[in-house]
Amino acid sequence: MKKALLFTGLLFAFYSGFAQGQWPFVSGNSGAIYYNGGNVGINLMNPGCPLDVYGMIHNNFMVVDALAAGNIGAWVRGGASGVNGNVVVQASGGNAFWITADPYNLKIGAYGGTEPSVGMINCTFGNTVGINTTNTQGYTFAVAGTALFTQVTVKATSSNNPTFTPWADYVFKKEYRLPSLESIEKYIRENNHLPGIPTSAEVEKNGIDLASTETKLLEKIEQLTLYTIDLQKQVDSLKAENQKFANLQQQVDQLKKSLSEK
Protein backbone atom coordinates (compact mmCIF):
# COMPACT_ATOMS: atom_id res chain seq x y z
CA MET A 1 0.00 0.00 0.00
CA LYS A 2 2.82 2.31 0.91
CA LYS A 3 4.50 1.45 -2.31
CA ALA A 4 1.33 2.16 -4.29
CA LEU A 5 0.93 5.50 -2.56
CA LEU A 6 4.52 6.39 -3.28
CA PHE A 7 4.04 5.41 -6.93
CA THR A 8 0.88 7.49 -7.22
CA GLY A 9 2.61 10.40 -5.59
CA LEU A 10 5.49 10.11 -7.96
CA LEU A 11 3.11 9.91 -10.93
CA PHE A 12 1.32 13.02 -9.71
CA ALA A 13 4.57 14.83 -9.25
CA PHE A 14 5.61 13.90 -12.78
CA TYR A 15 2.21 14.83 -14.19
CA SER A 16 2.04 18.22 -12.51
CA GLY A 17 5.59 18.85 -13.54
CA PHE A 18 4.77 18.08 -17.18
CA ALA A 19 1.66 20.23 -17.07
CA GLN A 20 3.62 23.18 -15.83
CA GLY A 21 6.04 23.28 -18.71
CA GLN A 22 9.56 22.19 -19.44
CA TRP A 23 10.58 19.74 -16.85
CA PRO A 24 13.51 17.44 -17.24
CA PHE A 25 12.29 13.97 -16.54
CA VAL A 26 15.19 11.88 -17.66
CA SER A 27 18.60 13.45 -17.62
CA GLY A 28 21.59 11.98 -19.38
CA ASN A 29 24.81 12.87 -21.04
CA SER A 30 23.14 13.76 -24.32
CA GLY A 31 20.38 15.97 -23.03
CA ALA A 32 16.93 15.50 -21.58
CA ILE A 33 13.34 14.65 -22.36
CA TYR A 34 10.91 17.55 -22.08
CA TYR A 35 7.14 17.64 -21.96
CA ASN A 36 5.49 20.84 -23.09
CA GLY A 37 1.84 21.49 -23.85
CA GLY A 38 1.13 17.96 -25.03
CA ASN A 39 4.39 17.66 -26.98
CA VAL A 40 7.45 15.66 -26.01
CA GLY A 41 10.89 16.97 -26.87
CA ILE A 42 13.94 14.78 -26.72
CA ASN A 43 17.08 16.82 -26.31
CA LEU A 44 14.83 19.79 -27.18
CA MET A 45 13.16 22.14 -24.73
CA ASN A 46 10.40 23.49 -27.00
CA PRO A 47 8.99 20.57 -29.00
CA GLY A 48 6.94 21.80 -31.98
CA CYS A 49 5.04 18.54 -32.60
CA PRO A 50 3.91 15.54 -30.56
CA LEU A 51 7.40 14.04 -30.69
CA ASP A 52 10.24 16.37 -31.49
CA VAL A 53 13.74 14.95 -31.41
CA TYR A 54 17.01 16.80 -31.78
CA GLY A 55 19.45 14.12 -32.77
CA MET A 56 19.32 10.72 -34.40
CA ILE A 57 16.47 8.25 -34.19
CA HIS A 58 17.28 4.62 -34.75
CA ASN A 59 14.69 1.90 -35.01
CA ASN A 60 14.03 -1.33 -36.88
CA PHE A 61 10.79 -0.60 -38.64
CA MET A 62 8.91 2.55 -39.24
CA VAL A 63 5.41 3.11 -40.59
CA VAL A 64 4.12 6.52 -41.58
CA ASP A 65 0.42 6.86 -42.34
CA ALA A 66 -0.59 9.80 -44.52
CA LEU A 67 -4.08 10.58 -43.30
CA ALA A 68 -5.51 12.81 -46.00
CA ALA A 69 -4.99 13.56 -49.67
CA GLY A 70 -2.19 16.07 -50.06
CA ASN A 71 -0.49 15.01 -46.82
CA ILE A 72 3.16 14.18 -47.04
CA GLY A 73 3.93 10.94 -45.26
CA ALA A 74 7.53 11.65 -44.48
CA TRP A 75 9.48 14.81 -45.18
CA VAL A 76 13.24 14.90 -45.28
CA ARG A 77 14.57 18.37 -45.82
CA GLY A 78 17.70 20.41 -45.51
CA GLY A 79 17.35 22.00 -42.10
CA ALA A 80 19.60 24.94 -42.86
CA SER A 81 20.27 27.11 -45.89
CA GLY A 82 22.41 25.34 -48.47
CA VAL A 83 21.76 21.90 -46.98
CA ASN A 84 20.16 19.24 -49.18
CA GLY A 85 17.61 16.65 -48.09
CA ASN A 86 18.83 13.06 -48.28
CA VAL A 87 17.37 9.59 -47.91
CA VAL A 88 19.74 6.66 -48.15
CA VAL A 89 18.65 3.09 -48.82
CA GLN A 90 21.11 0.30 -48.31
CA ALA A 91 20.98 -3.48 -48.18
CA SER A 92 22.96 -5.30 -45.53
CA GLY A 93 26.60 -4.95 -46.55
CA GLY A 94 25.53 -3.35 -49.86
CA ASN A 95 26.03 -0.02 -51.54
CA ALA A 96 24.30 3.04 -50.12
CA PHE A 97 21.94 4.45 -52.75
CA TRP A 98 20.94 8.07 -52.35
CA ILE A 99 17.72 9.94 -52.86
CA THR A 100 18.72 13.58 -52.71
CA ALA A 101 16.86 16.84 -53.19
CA ASP A 102 18.91 19.89 -53.94
CA PRO A 103 16.96 23.10 -54.58
CA TYR A 104 16.47 22.25 -58.26
CA ASN A 105 16.58 18.47 -58.64
CA LEU A 106 15.48 15.18 -57.16
CA LYS A 107 18.46 12.91 -57.64
CA ILE A 108 17.97 9.16 -57.31
CA GLY A 109 20.12 6.10 -57.38
CA ALA A 110 23.74 7.20 -57.28
CA TYR A 111 25.68 5.37 -54.60
CA GLY A 112 28.61 6.10 -52.36
CA GLY A 113 29.67 7.28 -48.95
CA THR A 114 28.97 10.96 -49.60
CA GLU A 115 26.09 12.87 -51.12
CA PRO A 116 26.29 12.58 -54.93
CA SER A 117 26.25 15.71 -57.07
CA VAL A 118 24.34 13.92 -59.87
CA GLY A 119 21.96 10.96 -59.55
CA MET A 120 21.49 8.16 -62.06
CA ILE A 121 17.87 9.31 -62.44
CA ASN A 122 17.28 13.03 -61.99
CA CYS A 123 13.87 14.71 -61.87
CA THR A 124 14.35 18.42 -62.45
CA PHE A 125 12.41 21.43 -61.26
CA GLY A 126 10.90 21.76 -64.77
CA ASN A 127 9.58 18.16 -64.54
CA THR A 128 12.09 16.82 -67.01
CA VAL A 129 14.11 13.65 -66.44
CA GLY A 130 17.83 13.26 -67.00
CA ILE A 131 19.67 9.96 -66.87
CA ASN A 132 23.15 10.55 -65.47
CA THR A 133 22.69 14.31 -65.86
CA THR A 134 20.66 17.11 -64.31
CA ASN A 135 21.07 19.24 -67.45
CA THR A 136 18.29 18.12 -69.82
CA GLN A 137 18.93 21.09 -72.14
CA GLY A 138 15.25 21.82 -72.61
CA TYR A 139 14.35 18.24 -73.55
CA THR A 140 11.72 16.26 -71.62
CA PHE A 141 14.18 13.38 -71.32
CA ALA A 142 17.95 13.34 -71.67
CA VAL A 143 20.50 10.55 -71.42
CA ALA A 144 24.14 11.46 -70.84
CA GLY A 145 25.62 8.21 -72.07
CA THR A 146 24.45 5.37 -74.23
CA ALA A 147 21.02 3.80 -74.26
CA LEU A 148 19.83 0.40 -75.41
CA PHE A 149 16.35 -0.55 -76.55
CA THR A 150 14.84 -3.67 -78.04
CA GLN A 151 12.37 -1.46 -79.90
CA VAL A 152 11.80 2.27 -80.15
CA THR A 153 8.91 4.02 -81.80
CA VAL A 154 8.76 7.75 -82.45
CA LYS A 155 5.24 8.98 -82.83
CA ALA A 156 5.55 12.48 -84.15
CA THR A 157 3.09 14.81 -85.74
CA SER A 158 3.79 18.27 -87.03
CA SER A 159 1.88 19.61 -84.02
CA ASN A 160 4.04 18.01 -81.30
CA ASN A 161 7.27 18.14 -83.28
CA PRO A 162 7.59 21.15 -85.62
CA THR A 163 10.72 19.74 -87.30
CA PHE A 164 8.88 16.58 -88.33
CA THR A 165 7.72 16.41 -91.93
CA PRO A 166 5.15 13.86 -92.99
CA TRP A 167 6.39 10.44 -94.15
CA ALA A 168 7.88 10.97 -97.60
CA ASP A 169 5.45 9.14 -99.89
CA TYR A 170 4.59 12.50 -101.50
CA VAL A 171 7.59 11.84 -103.76
CA PHE A 172 5.47 9.27 -105.63
CA LYS A 173 2.44 11.52 -105.99
CA LYS A 174 1.65 12.67 -109.53
CA GLU A 175 1.97 16.37 -108.67
CA TYR A 176 5.46 15.94 -107.15
CA ARG A 177 8.21 17.67 -109.11
CA LEU A 178 11.35 15.57 -108.94
CA PRO A 179 14.35 17.94 -108.98
CA SER A 180 16.61 17.41 -111.98
CA LEU A 181 19.91 15.58 -111.41
CA GLU A 182 21.69 18.65 -112.79
CA SER A 183 20.15 20.85 -110.08
CA ILE A 184 21.21 18.30 -107.43
CA GLU A 185 24.74 18.22 -108.81
CA LYS A 186 24.90 22.01 -108.73
CA TYR A 187 23.53 22.08 -105.17
CA ILE A 188 26.08 19.53 -103.96
CA ARG A 189 28.93 21.43 -105.65
CA GLU A 190 27.85 24.65 -103.94
CA ASN A 191 26.82 23.33 -100.52
CA ASN A 192 28.60 20.01 -100.00
CA HIS A 193 25.49 18.29 -98.69
CA LEU A 194 22.23 16.91 -100.06
CA PRO A 195 19.32 19.37 -100.34
CA GLY A 196 16.97 19.06 -97.35
CA ILE A 197 19.45 17.04 -95.25
CA PRO A 198 21.06 18.80 -92.25
CA THR A 199 24.73 19.70 -92.57
CA SER A 200 27.58 18.28 -90.47
CA ALA A 201 27.67 21.57 -88.57
CA GLU A 202 23.93 21.44 -87.84
CA VAL A 203 24.14 17.83 -86.68
CA GLU A 204 27.12 18.64 -84.49
CA LYS A 205 25.11 21.44 -82.89
CA ASN A 206 21.61 19.94 -82.72
CA GLY A 207 22.15 16.18 -82.85
CA ILE A 208 20.30 13.79 -85.13
CA ASP A 209 16.53 14.00 -84.93
CA LEU A 210 15.80 10.35 -85.61
CA ALA A 211 12.25 10.55 -86.96
CA SER A 212 12.95 13.58 -89.19
CA THR A 213 16.19 12.07 -90.45
CA GLU A 214 14.60 8.72 -91.29
CA THR A 215 11.85 10.53 -93.15
CA LYS A 216 14.37 12.61 -95.08
CA LEU A 217 16.49 9.53 -95.86
CA LEU A 218 13.37 7.82 -97.18
CA GLU A 219 12.66 10.87 -99.36
CA LYS A 220 16.19 10.62 -100.80
CA ILE A 221 15.80 6.87 -101.40
CA GLU A 222 12.48 7.43 -103.12
CA GLN A 223 14.05 10.12 -105.31
CA LEU A 224 17.02 7.86 -106.09
CA THR A 225 14.62 5.05 -107.02
CA LEU A 226 12.89 7.36 -109.49
CA TYR A 227 16.26 8.52 -110.94
CA THR A 228 17.39 4.91 -111.25
CA ILE A 229 14.20 3.82 -113.01
CA ASP A 230 14.53 6.79 -115.36
CA LEU A 231 18.23 6.06 -115.98
CA GLN A 232 17.41 2.45 -116.85
CA LYS A 233 14.86 3.74 -119.38
CA GLN A 234 17.45 6.08 -120.91
CA VAL A 235 20.01 3.28 -121.11
CA ASP A 236 17.42 0.99 -122.70
CA SER A 237 16.54 3.57 -125.35
CA LEU A 238 20.26 4.25 -125.95
CA LYS A 239 20.80 0.54 -126.40
CA ALA A 240 17.97 0.39 -128.94
CA GLU A 241 19.35 3.43 -130.72
CA ASN A 242 22.85 1.96 -130.69
CA GLN A 243 21.49 -1.25 -132.09
CA LYS A 244 19.89 0.78 -134.85
CA PHE A 245 23.27 2.42 -135.59
CA ALA A 246 25.00 -0.94 -135.51
CA ASN A 247 22.48 -2.28 -137.97
CA LEU A 248 22.97 0.79 -140.20
CA GLN A 249 26.74 0.38 -139.95
CA GLN A 250 26.36 -3.23 -140.97
CA GLN A 251 24.29 -2.18 -143.98
CA VAL A 252 26.85 0.50 -144.87
CA ASP A 253 29.64 -2.07 -144.58
CA GLN A 254 27.72 -4.47 -146.80
CA LEU A 255 27.02 -1.71 -149.35
CA LYS A 256 30.72 -0.73 -149.32
CA LYS A 257 31.69 -4.31 -149.79
CA SER A 258 29.28 -4.85 -152.68
CA LEU A 259 30.39 -1.55 -154.26
CA SER A 260 34.05 -2.49 -154.04
CA GLU A 261 33.26 -5.90 -155.47
CA LYS A 262 31.70 -4.32 -158.55
Binding site: A66, A69, I72, A74, W75, G79, I99, T100, A101
Partner: peptide, 12 residues
Protein backbone atom coordinates in the same frame (compact mmCIF):
# COMPACT_ATOMS: atom_id res chain seq x y z
CA UNK B 1 -8.02 8.48 -50.64
CA UNK B 2 -4.57 9.71 -49.59
CA UNK B 3 -1.26 9.26 -51.36
CA UNK B 4 1.66 7.84 -49.42
CA UNK B 5 4.69 9.90 -50.06
CA UNK B 6 8.16 10.89 -49.09
CA UNK B 7 9.00 14.54 -49.51
CA UNK B 8 12.59 15.51 -50.05
CA UNK B 9 13.63 19.12 -50.03
CA UNK B 10 16.77 21.12 -50.44
CA UNK B 11 16.44 24.14 -48.22
CA UNK B 12 17.10 27.11 -50.42
Amino acid sequence: GAIGGLGVEGNA
